[in-house]
Design a protein around this nucleic acid. Structure first.
Lengths: 221, 221
DNA sequence: CATATGCTCAAGTTATCACTTGAATACTTG
DNA sequence: CAAGTATTCAAGTGATAACTTGAGCATATG
């Protein structure tokens, strides 16, 4: 066996990538940035942390190569370094869902009452979009919709949904989607629409997963 | 916005998976277990750590759901919880290779002089195996070969290679593979064979990647 | 049933991490 | 060029992690 030091160093370097994702707050950041780039302050607000702390987390992520930044005026915008990072995060979630019992309990707790929030797979949505027999709503905040959305979706942030609900057809099924499988917006939207007597379901994944699967997307220009 | 506590807890739970991989020694263990299950003592030897420390690392991995164990007599054998874990590890390596500059430097340092160690892709090997115009050598330790190997490969641990080298055909190309892209055995084998005047190359990945790609494998029964 | 083997547990040390607070920079705008 | 905003840096604190050492358990064997 060769001297073990370079081997250790190589594994340490790989592990540094995993370690960067090994904090709940940083995982939350990566999950956010999988939607669209954001400024430090926006990120801090979303993850309920101080700006200073958020900045330090972002620098840990940057040092590990997971995110990059660009400055625009006084703001600094962070984005994922590449789609591979989103794939890594998806792999983490996949293992967590399958092997960490705690996750499903916590997910139920976070997502609330899911009775009546029937999920729809990407394949099924794909087919039904082709047939044109669903109304597809993107219930994320509008900036994320602008950064990219499922082809054929209409931007309907939760705040706007209440008003729009009356204008939606009662005959066609409505499908809502948002950031990912654990995003609450789509669940909330479905509950609101069903309370109004509409046929609504949620997509079981979010925009990043849809895009990575190579399914059709649109980006506002 | 909903109360942030369950959300944090959910991300923390996901992050715990990444954190388990966030130590070089544990990453090394996962990389090893992607080949075959092993006892604690074997793992400790391979990663050059004390048995006690290794046992504790294994328990961290087990708590995060990445590995499972079974007892056989006085020994406890650990294995990956599922193929998803191997995929997660592959995703980590992928991001590290692309975004951590340090990794390629360390890899060169660890693998040594790679001039003349021409890599071969899985696709190419696949085609050439079908045509039958290569000799395929599995240069991992034999227990790993027994736990599973590329269909058509011959077990040739490095210790045995020296003796076998004289019996190999000079006309056909020889392909060596081992544990993964950073495994030194295949490089060592190629150098040894080329020094003997044989045409040798290495597969650019290892057995676990080949298997996960759905390519043909054999498992000794 | 005593001994050996293989693994786990517990305690202790040193280093690293997450977060806070307050100050320092970088850029923009009046 | 002064004042304001967004971000980063630096220092400090309490908690957690990695590794060591030595003891404790479980299973097999004489």
């Amino acid at each position: 066996m060769r001297n073990g030091a370079p081997k250790s160093a190589l594994f340490d370097a790989h592990a540094s990538v995993a370690q960067a994702l090994g904090s709940g707050r940083r995982a939350e950041i990566v999950d956010l940035l999988a939607q669209a780039e954001r400024s430090v302050e926006e990120i801090a607000t979303e993850i309920s942390q101080s700006v200073a702390n958020t900045s330090q987390h972002l620098q840990v992520l940057a040092r590990a190569g997971l995110v990059r930044s660009r400055r625009d005026g006084t703001r600094v915008y962070y984005r994922l370094a590449s789609d591979r990072v989103a794939e890594l995060w998806a792999a983490v979630r996949d293992v967590a869902v399958r092997h960490v019992a705690e996750v499903s309990v916590l997910a139920d707790e976070y997502l609330g009452d899911r009775r009546g929030v029937e999920p729809l797979s990407s394949e099924e949505l794909s087919e039904r979009l082709a047939r044109g027999d669903v109304v597809l709503l993107d219930v994320r905040p509008e900036p994320e919709f602008l950064a990219g959305h499922i082809a054929g979706a209409r931007s309907t942030p939760l705040e706007a949904l209440d008003e729009l609900a009356g204008k939606l057809p009662k005959s066609r099924e409505i499908v809502a989607y948002c950031r990912g499988p654990y995003c609450v917006y789509a669940d909330d939207a479905v509950r609101l629409l069903r309370a109004r007597g509409l046929k609504a379901r949620r997509l079981d994944v979010g925009y990043p997963e849809w895009r990575r699967a190579g399914l059709p997307v649109e980006i506002a220009s």
